[in-house]
Design a protein around this nucleic acid. Structure first.
Lengths: 228, 228
DNA sequence: GTTATCTTTTAACCGCTATTAGAAGATTGT
DNA sequence: ACAATCTTCTAATAGCGGTTAAAAGATAAC
């Protein structure tokens, strides 16, 4: 039980910086240790999405962060805890990012327009902002129960947002009748999540993907009279 | 170089039975060895989709097939070759299944109807027919280059089918103008592939998912005048 | 029923990777 | 400069899992 020396921030598991604004430049008034920790966490996210849960080696993570593998143990007690933080942070950030985008919409915004906003936010978070969200969606199915059980709590909260969006659309009559929202919702999410698998900046611009996805979804689920 | 004793069928890599008809009962006039080989291949597909490329242990595969791990080496020279066969067979079967469904459509079938057929076939292959297709879509991103390079050949052939479908739709004016088919196509595939991640028989019937997906896609991509 | 072949098993081997121990390097305050 | 602490490194440890070797069980031919 090596709980004698205390690494900087070693509470339970989840830790995340405030939702990043728009441009890069993370970390200003941080100590070097904090920056190393963040660099390692990011490296873990990248490596995790590239190699998968079982394939991610601590050596790779260290290399990606410019550090020797054992240095990781100064910040996390085990590989599992590191991965757990990656997936938790990934899920939380995605939810916060989408929630923030929706919250910024003026009250009274039609449900389908809010859907567009959510699509935009989800796709951008997945494709550019964060290796974290990417790491999550590529690995949820393969995570060991111990990790999954804690991550799924956050995931459910996120799913709740989407359920809400579809519920609004149903309530306002904007969703095409005959469409089961409980099936339509995960199917739509699939469009977004799978984009992370095939999209590359060389292939097309993010904007184009976002616009096309929005267009397909809107036409795909909107009731006959409900177009902007 | 242990190439002295010759396992039954040990040519290059790919091997696949004829596209299964409709019901189960595979294998009639097969020798016991052949059946064991198939059982192992299937076990590998199942284990691969559950644990991922790096996570699939030969012990797990053996257990799933009711055999000790080293028995696998009687049929394949290495773990890598086994996995390569799984992903190749998975890709090939998916393509053949969809191609067969499309080929069965009467000539002159509108492009959007053919799209419905492809959606139906792809989803069913993914959700019930085969653990193989499932293993493929869950692992393509994490496969080592050696395996991927040979699998991607088959994948491209399959992608060609979908590209063709969208090209037809564009040509006949059935695709909504302003929609980039090169973006719409992978986005639509995402709906289908991601279904494997969330769908479970307890949640809904396959028929319902297929119908909803078809409905969303048709409305999502069809030109204003083109509904059946 | 005996022999040759096919199939599977048990018992090592070996490399790889998470983890630990303990020794350096930094860093900071005085 | 010096000491205390924080951070990272190098060098071992330990167990897991792919692979191999060789023996044991089937199977079929004669």
């Amino acid at each position: 039980m090596p709980a004698l020396k205390g690494p900087p921030g070693s509470s339970g598991a989840a830790r995340h910086s405030g939702s990043s604004g728009s441009s890069g430049a993370s970390g200003e008034g941080q100590t070097k240790s904090e920056r190393t920790r963040e660099r390692l966490l990011h490296a873990a996210a990248v490596t995790l999405s590239r190699l998968g849960y079982a394939g991610m080696r601590l050596v790779d993570v260290g290399e990606e962060a410019g550090v020797q593998a054992p240095a990781i143990y100064y910040y996390w007690p085990s590989r599992e805890q590191l991965i757990e933080e990656v997936v938790t942070v990934g899920t939380v950030r995605l939810r916060e990012y989408v929630a923030a985008a929706l919250a910024a919409a003026p009250p009274g915004t039609p449900a389908l327009d809010r859907l567009d906003i959510a699509i935009d936010a989800h796709l951008r978070q997945l494709m550019s902002e964060s290796a974290f969200a990417h790491a999550v969606i590529r690995n949820i199915s393969q995570l060991p129960a111990a990790i999954r059980s804690r991550q799924i709590v956050e995931e459910r909260k996120y799913a709740e947002i989407w359920r809400g969006l579809f519920a609004e659309a149903v309530a306002s009559g904007e969703l095409r009748s005959g469409l089961d929202p409980d099936l339509a919702q995960p199917l739509i999410i699939g469009i977004l999540n799978w984009a992370a698998e095939w999209w590359s900046p060389k292939r097309s611009s993010i904007d184009a993907v976002v616009a096309t996805a929005q267009s397909i979804v809107r036409h795909g689920v909107a009731a006959p009279g409900s177009f902007s």
